[in-house]
């Protein structure tokens, strides 16, 4: 096997693609990319068994810069592509990446419904508050009344709260990182990849070019780690309903924090919900043995070996009854 798993050590460098990176200097994207490389190395992800999917926008370019399968998809649709690949080949390590406009505006339907499915993949949302690549329009994370440098007018719509939305949509692992805290972000990526079920990681990141409100200085002392505050995010597999509800309430309360204090770290890890694959296996056990990417079965001459006789039987007009 050419599988990377047989290789003894893979360093972060092995995951860096030899490509020119066209992100702005000082962009938070660089920090996130570093964290991804380091996390992949820590997890020793086989490069041929890993795929990173990107949406559209600066963040969507991430797959180009990583030495794993890379798929640059469509605006707002990254989760659909990623889910399709994961469903068809469950052995694949799948990471979907998109910006806050991508995931919360044009892709909001997929964001919410992906939570419902609890597939075993990681979705990283790069949140810089603006549409950078189209020169700084407001993303749905920007608050009412806020106006960044290149906006003609302030925002007159309410903002969306990605953490809260992820929690109520069914994501079973929900966390927030900060692009300039690479070590903590690396740990979050590692933990997310180890979670069985769908993980949502929001990464706060300044956009030095277009978001002059939420700068590195603005974040400065506001960020704190939930774990430092004694916050308990874990819902074990057999937790009673009342305790589950309590942790969800607490997660939503922390998600609402913004301003003087901005929490980072793990908001929720819910092990009480079944993941998609075990649900599916209950209905269709065959899928567990032979994933969709291996359904073509032929003989030596290329003829299909799928046996349709049992299905024909239910639709057949029997020969003997024709003799009546």
């Amino acid at each position: 096997m050419g599988d990377d798993t047989l290789k003894t050590t893979l360093s972060a460098k092995h995951y860096q693609a030899d490509q020119i990176n066209d992100w702005c200097a000082g962009c938070g994207d660089h920090g996130i990319l570093r964290a991804l490389e380091k996390a992949m190395a820590k997890l020793e992800l086989a490069r041929d068994q890993t795929a990173v999917f990107g949406g559209i926008g600066c963040s969507g370019k991430t797959p180009y810069y990583l030495n794993v399968g890379g798929v640059h998809t469509l605006h707002g649709r990254v989760l659909s592509f990623a889910a399709g690949a994961k469903l068809a080949n469950p052995a694949l390590n799948v990471i979907a990446i998109g910006g806050d406009g991508d995931g919360l505006s044009i892709g909001a339907g997929h964001f919410v419904n992906s939570g419902r499915r609890n597939l075993d993949l990681l979705y990283i949302l790069f949140n810089n508050g603006v549409y950078g690549l189209t020169k700084g329009q407001a993303a749905p994370t920007l608050r009412i009344g806020e106006k960044t440098r290149s906006m003609p007018r302030c925002v007159i719509q309410q903002h969306m709260n990605p953490i809260a939305l992820a929690v109520i949509s069914g994501y079973t692992w929900v966390a927030r990182g900060y692009a300039y805290d690479v070590p903590a972000l690396t740990d979050l990526v590692v933990a997310a990849m180890q979670h069985r079920g769908i993980a949502f990681l929001e990464v706060l990141q300044p956009c030095p070019k277009y978001n002059d409100l939420h700068t590195k200085d603005w974040y400065g002392d506001r960020l704190y780690k939930l774990s430092d505050d004694g916050y308990q995010a874990l819902i074990a597999a057999e937790t009673d309903a009342a305790s589950v509800q309590q942790i969800y309430n607490e997660a939503l309360a922390r998600a609402a924090q913004w301003g003087e204090l901005v929490p980072t770290g793990l908001f929720l890890q819910d092990l009480s919900k079944p993941d998609f694959r075990s649900q599916l296996a209950g209905l269709q056990p065959g899928i567990a043995r032979r994933p969709p990417c291996q359904c073509v079965v032929t003989d030596d001459s290329g003829r299909t070996q799928i046996d349709l006789e049992p299905l024909f039987e239910t639709l057949r007009i029997a020969a003997d009854s024709s003799q009546t």
Binding site: F53, V71, T73, L74, R77, S80, F81, A82, A83, G84, A85, K86, L87, A88, N89, L92, P292, C293, Q294
Partner: peptide
């Protein structure tokens, strides 16, 4: 798009 994603895996 999900069908496309699945197709990429074969």
């Amino acid at each position: 798009n999900m069908a496309s994603g699945a197709a990429l895996t074969g």
